[in-house]
Design a protein around this nucleic acid. Structure first.
Lengths: 245, 245
DNA sequence: TCCTGTGAATGTCTTCACAGCC
DNA sequence: GGCTGTGAAGACATTCACAGGA
């Protein structure tokens, strides 16, 4: 990521690591494989080769094999991978055998959209609580949920088993929300606020920065104009490019 | 990241590269520096050291210096970087000296939220058009915009100078939308659909995958429980961790 | 003295290429 | 023969450490 989150490793981590360390870049691809395998399974296929999976997932076949090898040797030489078996192993590895209740903090434009967005609950991340710091919002209903106060976080964690906090507040409030989430025992945080947020070593933070993505596109987009004119000048044909989503 | 987008380099690209190639990882951090510098500027500071900028941006100081060195030598030894000057250079490099009109394709839950989300226009990416494939939506108004048909894309690109397309459709339609965007001349695409999308080499694709982020958190979250109990067992104190958003 | 700019060292990720098993 | 699993090579990114200018 990059936008890949930085992580220093504590002593305890390296102990865990020693058992079977999966590289960060691989972890970020597992969900893509998972989704692809679900599609493939839906079409009734029972085995799949690394080459085919690579094509569908938009990556290189060697990368697929290496990635899957971190999960264990679940393939059969000459045949490929058993789709069902791979799905089970992968779900287990990703911790998707249980639900992870989510709290959305900040019920503004973005927070409200995320609350309505069905894609979370479907995939094992039910939106269990909505939280806002604005007293005029607290106590009102949004969809099925009563909007709760930031102070209620510890109680919500206790009662509902909140495992993940989503920060959808303005930038200014993001760090405080993160601190409060961690203090309440939420150690996995997804930050949508356009601000740098810091969490203690035992917590996990990831970010989604919409403006950043557009700015990166802008960077390559303006280069593209240069590239395009050069290509024209030189009469070079465009090659094909693959990207993953 | 990682979810870092893959990019093969065409011949024309390497020509462009030779002038001054900025590593992908650096490009992804420039927007963070930019935002930080705007904050700092707002507080009236006129110069900043790499160390301070690093702290505010949540990265290592050496990384800041190396990143900024790709833009040219804009710092002063013994003093630091001139905030205003750096902002100008960085904006220019990122192509943010002009607006980049955006079309949002797919006006469902997420698309609607993105259309309402003010953060785009503020940062030079005005939402100039809304597009949907659903005939019952086409022709209706959403906010200031009439929802247009997918077939209108080429016209919209011509009339409004659409530079970036945002895909906010269900997974099934994502690839077709991407193809249509590219055919209409939109070479920068941000994909929110949970699907693998491929674009030709001359186009740029980035993705935001919400479920993926949660699944990665789930991976580390379940490890965390192991780590936590091990830490407890071993009596190891948690170190502090920094992450950027 | 302070802080940048950057070679060199280190660490991480990707890709190649092929041995080994079905 | 086909396809996985994996050492080894190569590309890329981060970090160190210090020379050198203000």
């Amino acid at each position: 990521m990059d936008f890949v989150n930085k992580r220093t490793r504590s002593v305890a981590w390296s102990v865990v690591d020693r058992r079977r360390r999966i590289p960060e870049a691989t972890v970020a691809r597992l969900p893509v494989y998972l989704r692809t395998l679900l599609d493939v399974q839906g079409e009734g296929m029972t085995t799949i080769s690394s080459e085919r999976l690579a094509e569908l997932a938009g990556v290189n076949a060697a990368k697929v094999r290496k990635d899957l090898s971190y999960l264990g040797s679940y393939g059969t030489r000459g045949v490929g991978y058993d789709v069902d078996h791979l799905l089970v192993q992968m779900s287990r590895e990703l911790g998707l055998t249980r639900d992870w209740p989510v709290a959305i903090v900040g019920v503004g434009n973005l927070g409200a959209a995320l609350a309505n967005y069905g894609g979370f609950g479907d995939r094992g991340f039910p939106v269990a609580a909505l939280v806002d710091a604005d007293p005029s919002k607290v106590g009102t209903m949004f969809g099925d949920h009563e909007i709760r106060d930031l102070d209620d976080l510890p109680a919500l964690v206790n009662e509902l088993g909140i495992a993940i906090g989503i920060i959808a507040t303005p930038a200014a409030g993001a760090q405080e929300v993160a601190d409060r989430l961690v203090a309440a025992g939420v150690t996995s945080i997804l930050n949508f606020a356009p601000a740098v947020v810091t969490v203690p070593d035992h917590a996990q933070l990831r970010k989604v920065d919409l403006a950043l993505e557009l700015q990166v596109l802008s960077f390559y987009g303006q280069r593209e104009s240069i590239g395009a004119s050069l290509r024209e000048e030189l009469g070079v044909a465009a090659e094909s490019k693959e990207s993953v989503s």
